[in-house]
Computed example of a mutant assay.
Amino acid sequence: MSSQESGREKETIELDEARLQGQAEIWRYMFSFADSMALKSAVELRIADIIHSHGVAITLSQIASCINGSLTSPDITTLARIMRLLVRRKIFTVHHPSDGGDPLYDLTHSSRWLLHDSEQTLAPMILMENHPWLIAPWHCFSQCVKECGIAFKKAHGREIWDLASGNPEFNKLFNDGLACTSKVVTSAILSGYKQGLSSIESLVDVGGGIGGLISEIVKAYPHIKGVNFDLPHVVLAAPAYNGIFHVGGDMFHAIPNANAVIMKWVLHDWGDEDCIKILRNCRKAIPRGNGKVIIVEVVVKAEGSGVFDDLGFIFDLLMIAHSSGGKERTEVEWKKILEEGGFSRYKIIDIPALPSIIEAYPDDQ
C-alpha cells in the first residue's frame, strides 16, 4: 500500500470515528432530559433524606421501606434502575460489600443539595423547573424564533407573574423554588463579599421581595441601615426584621436613598432599555463621591471554563422560557448598560455561587 493510500485510509477511519462520536453525542443530548427526570424522582421520593436520616450507607430495600405515600409496596426494580443512572452521574454512590451482601447506597457532595430540610438545598428548584408548567415554554422556542413573542405566554396564554397571581399551587411552587436559590446565593454573598459590605452605612435592596437578603446582610452587619424595596403588595407580606425598613414603590419611578443599592437577580428579568432606566434611578438614589451599586447576576463567559460558566448559557435560555424579554449578559453587554445608566466604572467579583457581583461606581466618582 502506498503512503498516499495509507493516508486516505487513515482519514477514512478518523472520519468514521468522528461521525460515530457525533451520533453518540446527538443521542445523549436527545435524552438529556432523562437526567433531570431521574433527579426529580429522587427529590420526590426523598431518597437523599432517607439515606441522610440513617447516617450510614443503606440498601435499596431500606430506602424502599422508608418511601412514604405508596399505596402498595414500592417497586424496587424500578428504583434500582433509577439509582443506577444517578450513581453513574455521581449523584449517589454505591458500595458492593466483599461478603456478597446487598449494595449500599450513600450520599455524595451533589446529593446533599437534594436534602429538603437543609438550609442549603436546591430540592424546591428541581421540583419547580421540572414541573410541566415550567417545561411547557421550552417547547415554544422555535415558535418564538419564527414569530417573536414570549415563550411562557405562548405556552400558557399569560405571563409567568399573571399565572402565579391567579394560581395558588403554581405560586407556591414558584416561590419555594426562588426562595431556596436565594438562600444559596445569599450565603455566597455573605462569605465572598465581606470587604464590600463592611464599609456600607445604609443599603437598599431593590426588588428585595419579602426581605430575605437584606435581613441576612443586616444580621451579619448590624451597623447597616437596611431598606427592603419592592412593589407595595409584595412588602405588605414581608415580616418584621430588626434594622429593616420595608418601603413599597416602583423601581422605574424612584428608589429610596442609601449609600449603596443591591439588586440580586433583578436586571436579568428586563431588556436593556428597562435596565438603563432602573440603573439611572439607582444613580439618583446614591450619594456623589462614595456611592455604589451592587449587582448580583450571571456574567456569561463565551470561553469560560469555570465550574459555573457552562450554566450561564443554560440560564440565558431559561430567561427565554420564563421571562418577558430578560437575558443573561456578557461583560461587554453589562458594560454597555452600565455606562448608559450612569456607571462608567465597575469591577466583577467572583463569589462561591452561579452569579457574580458587579460592583458599579457612578460617573462622578
Rank of each mutant, 00 (worst) to 15 (best):
S3P: 01
E5V: 11
S6Q: 13
R8F: 15
R8L: 15
E9N: 09
E11N: 07
D16I: 00
A18C: 02
R19A: 00
G22S: 03
S32W: 01
S36V: 03
R46H: 10
D49C: 08
S53R: 14
A64E: 11
I82V: 11
V87S: 06
R89N: 15
P97H: 08
S98L: 10
L104R: 12
L104T: 07
L107D: 01
T108Y: 01
R112D: 00
S118Y: 04
E119F: 07
A123Q: 04
H131C: 14
P132A: 14
W133K: 14
F141C: 13
S142V: 13
Q143S: 09
F152G: 00
H156Q: 00
G157Y: 01
G166K: 09
E169L: 14
F170D: 00
D176P: 03
V184Y: 09
T186W: 07
L190S: 05
L203E: 01
G209M: 07
G211R: 03
V218W: 02
A220G: 06
Y221S: 10
H223N: 14
H223V: 15
N228D: 15
P232Q: 11
V234Q: 08
V234R: 07
V235F: 13
G249Q: 07
A260M: 03
A260G: 06
M263P: 00
D269E: 12
D269T: 08
G271W: 02
I278P: 03
C282L: 06
K284G: 00
P287C: 02
P287T: 11
I295F: 13
V296W: 06
S305R: 15
G306P: 10
L311R: 08
F315E: 02
W334Y: 07
L338D: 04
F343K: 09
F343Y: 10
S344N: 08
I349T: 04
I349V: 06
P352S: 08
Y361T: 14
P362M: 06
Q365P: 00
